[in-house]
Amino acid sequence: MNATMRRVAIASAVVSMAVSLAACGSAKEADNDKSDQKKKTGPLTIGLLLPEDQTARYENFDRPLITKKIKALCAECKVVYVNAKSDTALQQQQVDSMITKKVDAIILDAVDSEAIASSVKKADEADIPVVAYDRLAQGPISGYTSFDNEKVGKVQGEALLKALGNKAKDGKVVMLNGWEADPNAAMFKKGALSVLKGKVDIGKQYDVDRWLADKANEAMNGAISSLGKNNIVGVYSANDTMAGGAITALRSGGVDPLPPVTGQDAELAGVQRILAGTQYMSVYKPYEPEATAAAEMAIALGRGEKPNESNTVDSPTTKGIPATLITPVSLTKDNIKETVIKDGLYKASQICTAKYKAACEEAGLLK
């Protein structure tokens, strides 16, 4: 081979190698080969990282349910719990701490799904599998459990249309969407718009910072000022916390009667507002199956086994992530007894305080 041909061959090889490396760097397949080589028996340490403490569900349901299920599956296993309190940088530090502690697996509900990707990569490089919980974090995630989030938005949109009936075009609908940093918020919005677009007149839309009630209150006040208190016929609120803030603004702004307001998470205050008639609906998401799936995945992955999931999802960075997706339920005054009470989320006595006793009797919750 002459010198020119050798140079061409070497150049071609370099280009081929560069293409291969570039391909490896994009949207990699979920791969559990590392964990397969690390079979482990005996007790495990599972890191549990939840995103915030403003939404009641995380401390009241997710944390105790996940912990209980891990202990049921592995009595000697240890759960190390931290809450990021809506602070992206703090959660990154918490992942670093879990790596330093050499936990066997991490269950992660990300504050910011994109910003946490580098931390997930660090965990993967330390051979610690990460289960994305409720929100699909970016990076080399090993498993994912959540609800069908577009379906959540559709359920909310359908409920709002039902509540509006033939008044759907009589005024404006205000949309209070979730926090942009949460990938679920975009899916809720997409699902809701797939139902509402063309059937209602959307007067104002807001992406509410960190899902906070006071930020939803500010947005709703702005909408009332802009649209007029008599022109708002419905409010799409992506969750119950924001619904509470919106309803406070509607009342203080003199909107009477209150328009139908949606929600999500079946928070106790939300359920009580539904009974009282100030909030139209919420989305009940049975937390136990979601928590169970996360616990089972974390233990399997911590032992070096592949999670037993038939479904897969893709994130912007990783394809083929084993996933469990749970179907949400529309919660209204008519099915509180058959859902949140029957499933043990709340007792009737927790819901039916003195303030709500008459509403509970009317709904048949105290019989």
Rank of each mutant, 00 (worst) to 15 (best):
G139C: 07
M220W: 03
D343E: 13
L44R: 01
K85S: 13
M5L: 15
M98I: 11
V103S: 01
A185T: 13
F147R: 04
L301A: 07
K85A: 15
T100F: 03
K162F: 03
E52P: 11
Q264F: 12
K199E: 04
I336L: 04
G244D: 00
N60K: 05
Q37S: 15
A18Y: 04
A246D: 02
L258M: 09
L164W: 03
V80M: 10
L275S: 06
Q93Y: 06
D207F: 03
A249K: 04
Y133S: 02
V79H: 05
A23G: 08
S226Y: 07
E296V: 09
L108K: 03
Q91R: 06
E361L: 09
N221W: 07
K333Q: 11
N221V: 06
S97V: 09
K347Y: 11
S315M: 12
L227V: 14
S225F: 08
I341V: 14
K229M: 10
R135W: 11
V174K: 02
D314S: 11
P129S: 02
V155D: 06
S146W: 06
A293F: 08
Q54W: 05
M242R: 00
L275N: 02
D148E: 14
G263F: 03
L164N: 05
G234F: 12
N177Q: 10
G139N: 01
D124P: 00
Q156L: 13
F147G: 09
D170S: 15
P286Y: 00
E125V: 13
I274T: 06
C77F: 07
S35P: 13
K121M: 14
V79N: 07
P316F: 03
A137V: 13
A115H: 09
D207A: 14
V200L: 08
Y81L: 12
K40D: 04
L161E: 10
K319C: 09
K162W: 06
Q279F: 11
R251Q: 15
V261A: 08
N221I: 07
I106M: 03
P43D: 03
P43C: 02
V313F: 11
V271D: 01
V155C: 11
D240C: 10
P64C: 08
L301C: 08
L227K: 02
V14R: 00
E158P: 09
V14A: 06
K357T: 15
P43M: 02
K101E: 11
K40P: 08
G302R: 05
I106T: 02
M1W: 05
V271R: 00
L136G: 09
M297H: 00
D240R: 02
N32T: 07
G364Y: 05
L136H: 02
R273S: 14
V340C: 06
L73N: 08
I106D: 00
G302N: 06
L160N: 01
V255T: 05
Q279S: 07
Q91S: 12
N166P: 15
K333R: 14
L48A: 06
A168D: 00
M5Y: 07
S315L: 10
I341H: 00
Q205W: 10
M1A: 07
P286I: 04
T4Q: 03
K68L: 15
A213Y: 01
M187H: 05
Y58F: 15
D240H: 03
K38L: 15
L196S: 05
